[in-house]
Design a protein around this nucleic acid. Structure first.
Lengths: 365, 365
DNA sequence: CCAACTTATGTAACCAGTTCACGTATGTCG
DNA sequence: CGACATACGTGAACTGGTTACATAAGTTGG
């Protein structure tokens, strides 16, 4: 499993660098003494580590605090602006791009609408245009973007290629990661949208304290993203969670039936207003979702089920019957909560994926 | 996620001890020079590490090799007999106990049959008796048994308590790990049988090269065990993989229908002999299994699907239709293989679970 | 039986990284 | 301006690791 290499003294420096960097990022700005205390390292070691990090451009010294007792301490801060990452959702009817610094703070958003039947090459051009405009508009040099991550619906394999897309025309076979790599010249990653949304919720949303998470993205179409031990679980072919294709589940028809001759928002509203027919329709939709969700819940037994996507905005009108059906179907249903990020979740998750890559490959954490 | 502690020099010794110990166990018996070469450490370091391990009783020097060129090298071996673990399957109609040394070599088996309606306390007594007899019969002192692991059907929670058992009378609520802890006075663990069988296949069976594994245990009743990244995935309540309870899946009825008015073995044999009615029955059984399996496969998208348990002995008569139905139901079905261990798999997996615990907690790996 | 060869061991010097102790620098407070 | 508080700087000591080289203990061949 874990390749285990022997350690010489430089291993110590590596782990202590990591410990110090984490502490510094958590603290924001800190003195040597403080970092020593929180890491458990000596002041001298912390200083040596910060020297190195300073030379590599990840840490900068900031002016000392004034008005404090004793000799003023040198203060250091993580240079979150040493590099940037871009997270992009390439969705059915919109491109959403987010530019974030190394702390994951989003410094710019850019959004572009497009129609569902936009052909693949135009969709890709729009994605590139939106990503570039997002970066340019923020006044960040394109070379400063270290990594791009893209999320899209459909099955995305390990290499970042779209292995199968039912909804987007011409999308199957597109090497999304490969193409996105050309936008800024750095590394690029691609993953399934529901998976990324799950990552976002685990990072800063409603799934922060959960370790195993199933995230349902429900809208025109439903998809599921899975986190195991807080990490993405794409599966062998990237299709983990794609339970919608199981005939018994019927997610395909469920959404169609809900919005027959009207819109989802109206149905939910009517149900909320006491319309019996609408309520029945919502209940049937919830039941369908619950059947698919229960398969995932029984298979994975997650700590939490998060609901995101357009229809999740309906709130308790939909959640209440869904919880009820889920409890009926599962031995012990997990907590069900709404996503916190709405339609920005996929892009935020993409940012997190890109940051994971940066922290692993570049910062060497 | 990972609690990250700062490293002083003793961290190096820890990782190098681990590296050396692993190498030694892989090599069986080795010289200092050889261990130095395979670990990448210097001879002196290896020697210092082995000194320590010798004092702690985990390593012993063995007589040097004769007839070789040059000065004879001192040779060292891992003391696999420094301690033992016991793996027990507490099944519906049998107790199977295995005693294994620290290398995981099984040095004694013990088996006891019992009837399916044996009440819980008698079942527990039988398990204890069998485990003790297994150890005593091998001439191993009971104090030498460091850890016991037990596998049983039903849902076993994180603490090793049976949270729910449908098949065994009075079994729900039994604190299996707690009670097994009294047998030898050491730590005890308990887990679901299908999960342990999966662990066994990943350790030394047909799933060695797979990382994400679904193991179906099919017999009177069907259960599933899941490995993610080579590690057990029990889920929040221990119920991960318990998809048989989903009504749509119908595993409950499937097995009953197969053996209606006869036995499974006979049906399989008849089907193999060309009996059309038997073949149809097997096909229906396979289809039912495939429906449940496909839910797991679509949810998890594993590298491999392993089939074990009584009915898996049928071989291709069952596997062929199962593969066919699975391919129909899943976008891309994984490879399907038979388990290698038959009805010893659960006990072997329990041994592995116990060893995992020993290596983590006692050897400090 | 001894010299040549081969391989392992023992010892010493050195290096990298960490910590501790203690003196020194530089601010605030009364 | 002195007392105090706090941080910085330096050197010694320790741990764990590596390299280099002399020495020990076998086998092989004449």
């Amino acid at each position: 499993m874990t390749e285990l290499r022997p350690g010489d003294a430089s291993l110590l420096r590596k782990v202590n660098t990591q410990v110090t960097l984490r502490a510094l990022r958590r603290e924001g700005v800190a003195t040597l003494t403080r970092l020593g205390r929180v890491t458990g390292l000596s002041r001298q070691t912390v200083e040596a580590v910060l020297d190195e990090l300073g030379e590599r451009g990840y840490v900068r010294e900031v002016p000392p605090d004034e008005g404090a007792m004793g000799r003023p301490a040198r203060r250091f801060g993580f240079r979150a602006d040493a590099g940037y990452v871009v997270g992009v959702e390439v969705g059915g009817d919109a491109i959403v791009a987010a530019l974030a610094d190394l702390n994951g703070e989003v410094v710019a958003w850019k959004r572009a609408e497009l129609s569902g039947d936009t052909p693949a090459h135009q969709r890709l051009e729009a994605a590139e245009r939106t990503a570039l405009a997002c970066v340019d508009g923020a006044g960040v040099a394109r070379k400063q973007v270290w990594t791009v991550a893209a999320g899209t619906s459909g099955i995305v394999d390990r290499t970042g290629r779209v292995a199968l897309s039912i909804t987007l025309p011409g999308w199957t076979g597109v090497d999304l990661a490969g193409l996105a790599g050309r936008w800024f010249g750095g590394t690029a990653l691609a993953a399934n949208d529901a998976n990324l949304a799950a990552l976002a919720e685990h990072w800063r949303g409603s799934a922060q304290h959960a370790s195993d998470v199933v995230h349902l993205l429900i809208g025109h179409r439903a998809g599921a993203g899975i986190l195991i031990g807080g990490r993405l679980h794409p599966g062998r072919t990237g299709a983990a969670g794609e339970i919608g294709t199981l005939r018994q589940v019927g997610w395909e028809d469920a959404a169609r039936e809900l919005v027959r001759d009207t819109t989802a928002a109206k149905v939910f509203e009517a149900a909320l207003g006491g319309d019996r027919e609408a309520a029945r329709r919502v209940d049937r939709y919830a039941e369908n979702l619950a059947i698919g969700a229960s398969a995932l819940v029984l298979a994975i037994d997650p700590d939490l089920l998060v609901l995101g996507g357009g229809h999740a905005r309906a709130g308790d009108v939909l959640f209440e019957p869904l919880r009820r059906h889920l409890t009926e179907l599962c031995v012990s249903a997990p907590e069900v909560v709404a996503s916190t990020f709405g339609d920005e979740g996929v892009a935020i998750g993409a940012v997190r994926l890109a940051l994971d890559h940066v922290e692993r490959e570049i910062l060497g954490l």
